[in-house]
């Protein structure tokens, strides 16, 4: 890599994904910098979510490679990639609806706790010390996203905005080094979107790298350090929010030439 090490925390090298004859991601090479908020934008169907799914292991790439801090991620299963410090949320919110808000976040502690099936069967919850730690760590994250007083509600009964916040709390309980947010502000009203922006900036301040797919341009331009624009699976522009707003290719891609 010619870039300096902080620029190349996550490196996509000629990443390609074909669905049948359709090329969703077309030999995309892209770097995401450590400790920054990078946004991935582009028109609908540009392949943004596919890129997320390739990096987090939900889809296998057709060709190309993905590395995190020099370690190859491509071809690994989602739970393995999670264990390497990669957290994510989903475009269509995926909370565990029948579990309580607190239990949702407690699932996020899965990789930070140890008890196997045998110990779990034999010992009651009160006699497993890790349970208290899981609960406490989870409450910290519920408090950080402002859902502490909803802890005992079932997650499915929360309004959409709170479910999106819950998803972030749950992913953060994993203590990831990178957090992928797939349209975190989608379906949120203006006040909730502003709250979401504050939360994302707060998470960045903790030293966590954030990669964002988002259609709310005001939010993207507000909080991102770096913006990459893709269309038809290829990179068409990359730079600071200011550069991108002035780039004629980007305006073309959105408005149609």
């Amino acid at each position: 890599m010619t870039d300096n090490p902080t620029r190349s925390f996550i490196v996509l090298d000629r990443l390609r994904k074909e669905f049948g004859g359709v090329v969703a991601v077309n030999d995309l090479s892209l770097n995401f910098a450590k400790g920054q908020i990078s946004a991935l934008i582009g028109p609908n169907g540009a392949g943004k979510t596919t890129v997320f799914n390739l990096i987090t292991g939900f889809l296998p790439p057709t060709s190309g490679s993905i590395t995190l801090n020099g370690v190859n991620l491509s071809g690994k299963k989602p739970h393995r990639i999670a264990s390497m410090g990669v957290g994510r949320t989903f475009q269509n919110v995926q909370v565990f609806p029948a579990m309580t808000v607190l239990e949702n976040v407690m699932v996020g502690r899965h990789l930070r706790s140890r008890c196997g099936m045998a110990v779990s069967c034999l010992l009651p919850q009160a006699l497993r010390p890790e349970e208290k730690r899981i609960r406490e760590a989870s409450m910290v994250w519920l408090e950080a996203v402002g859902l502490k007083d909803q802890a005992d509600r079932t997650a499915g009964s929360l309004p959409l905005g709170s479910q999106r916040m819950l998803e972030i709390a749950r992913a953060m309980a994993l203590e990831p080094s990178v957090l992928f947010l797939d349209e975190p502000a989608s379906g949120l009203n203006a006040r909730e979107t502003a709250g979401m922006g504050d939360l994302i900036v707060k998470i960045k301040a903790m030293g966590i790298t954030i990669i964002l797919v988002e259609h709310d341009m005001e939010l993207v331009m507000d909080i991102s350090d770096n913006v990459a624009v893709v269309n038809f699976g290829s990179l068409i522009a990359e730079g600071t929010p200011k550069d991108i707003q002035a780039n004629p290719d980007v305006i073309n891609a959105y408005l149609g030439a």
Binding site: K77, P78, S83, A98, M99, M106, H110, A171
Partner: peptide
């Protein structure tokens, strides 16, 4: 809780490890 998570959403469960 992992099992209940699988019930709720397999994708979300595996994204949490």
């Amino acid at each position: 809780r992992g099992l209940q998570a699988i019930h709720g959403s397999e994708d979300a469960a595996s994204s949490l490890g």
